[in-house]
Design a protein around this nucleic acid. Sequence first.
DNA 1: ATACTTGCAAATGATTTGCCAGTGT
DNA 2: ACACTGGCAAATCATTTGCAAGTAT
Lengths: 136, 136
Amino acid sequence: MEGALGILREQGLRVSSARRLVLQSLFAADVPASAEAIASRTGLALDLASVYRNLETLERVGIVRHVHLGHGPGLYALAGAREREYLVCDRCGRVEAVEAERLDRTRETIRADFGYEARFTHFPIVGICAACSGEV
Amino acid sequence: MEGALGILREQGLRVSSARRLVLQSLFAADVPASAEAIASRTGLALDLASVYRNLETLERVGIVRHVHLGHGPGLYALAGAREREYLVCDRCGRVEAVEAERLDRTRETIRADFGYEARFTHFPIVGICAACSGEV
DNA sequence: ATACTTGCAAATGATTTGCCAGTGT
DNA sequence: ACACTGGCAAATCATTTGCAAGTAT
């Protein structure tokens, strides 16, 4: 938290109460949350537009990241170390968040075959999970 | 084209002129197109709502598929054989469409590590492409 | 003849923007 | 003080839905 505030100051951005609330909400969450959910958690003390503006600012300086897991609203979470990447089952909808290093083999294969340094932080890997493949 | 019409008939769905126009537009396109673009290509002979309704119907019976390559509108293309999967560079925005089999090694790695049968037809693989990695 | 489809208008959901008052530095 | 921010309302963009009229089978 202090680190995040430090980054804001370094960038000449203000540490406003709204920004504090958004950050608190993000630090409290264990899963990515929609702007709407973040606004709610602050007891609606914040306007949705402000939440969006702050999330955008925080994302621009690298504190926040957002992911699209499906057709719903974008979901926001803290960026940086311990960042998770996502797999989603196309059939049952289950979302699996994994530590980045577990995807290193996959990343390596993609780099070898296509030259891309892949990231599954913005869009998940979509597929049929083991449980659903097993079913008839 | 005839195959697509056949599927519609099999499903008890009608072969309307609007449906024909949407299909023609899709067969003519070499890249995924937005509903808006598809409507335009028919000379706006079709209402956008009808285009969306038809795309949804065609997708439900497996003739069409849509992909989200970024933050813009969803993009529609024919499904079935010769279906492409996508890679997008997070830096330069370049979109690369590849034949499904070129992603088989990647799919194999993902299956081995996570048990998922992955598909990059709905969300692309996002990463930094070789050209952009090379730059400072 | 009947049920599926269409166009048009209006509704919805997510996100953005304009503007002026408020506040952090 | 001054520029950055916040709230509020309205705008925008993508997509969906209601409904009465039209059309494929």
